[in-house]
Amino acid sequence: MKELWTIAEQKNGKLKSVSFELLSRGRKLAEDLDAQLCSVLIAGKITDETLQELIYRGADRVYVVEDERLEDFVAETHSNVLADLIESYQPHTILAAATSSGRTMMPYVAIKVNTGLTADCTELAIEEETQHLLQTRPAIGGNIMATIKTPDHSPQMATVRPKSSRPLPADSERTGEIIRLDLKEALIDSRVQVLGIRKDEENFTNIEEADIVVSGGKGMRKEENFAMLRQLADHFDAVIGASRDAVDRGWISYPHQVGLSGKTVSPKLYICAGVSGSIQHLAGIKTAEYIVAINNDPDANIFQVADFGIVGDLFEIIPELNKKLEKVKKGDSN
């Protein structure tokens, strides 16, 4: 039977939610393709109990290559392992998340196994007659949607933006098999050494994996004012983003930058205040589900893409919003 693979990711033995997002996309495609849905994990240490979750979330089969030396992502070794698995099992399609490791390993592997790869897909479908994977992605700053396929090579490979689909609810009735494979020594590439990881801030938050992002721009005027954005973000369990102008002024660090020269986000909700909506900023938020903008200039470009816009002074609106959200939380909505 054909196999459709999704690449799972983990950290310290815990699965990341992108693993489940990919399975929910893969489930539908696997049915259209009449294929088995397999989750592939290349990991340091992981228990069967944890892996079972992949089955509850849609996988028919889980392939896991586990070895301590695989805990940290190393492009060459992880790519070798995946390429070797592809060689052995010949999957029809492979989906990975467009994360730092997915976007590194997949292009490397695509060359090694001699096939095409489409980056950052937002929609995927199976073409009925040919069973090719139709891969749709935004390009040119989100101004076009291109549908791409790989007609003469296999496997079909694509990366998918994190947060562009919801995980399926866990169904503990589902069954499937877990296949553990040994790491072949020959696949270890020891040229690159991982020396460690540094976290700049107490909560190094990754804006690409957040459900809700609250961003500030130049209109925030100074670093201290981000405090009220943080307060707003706390109501939603959201993370803080920023325009390039806010980052370049040193109000917040670069990992928070949204846009062309920062990160592309696809959250459920994107709220921004004091952001004008330059093309470069919009390039990073076009795939957000809902956009809320607060800006005192009624002609600001951000209103072109906003689902809900408030024209007004953010220094009045945000405190008011924080106050009211506090009330909503307490249960007396008014």
């Binding site: 076009i144 291109a146 790989t150 072109q304 689902d307 007004g312």
Partner: peptide, 23 residues
């Protein structure tokens, strides 16, 4: 090139959302 573009769409740029004045 293994990948071929089969279709190009031009998504709407404006979302036609609500705009409320707070003044």
């Amino acid at each position: 090139s293994p990948t071929k573009v089969v279709k190009i769409d031009f998504p709407k740029v404006t979302r036609g959302g609500v705009k409320v004045a707070a003044d």
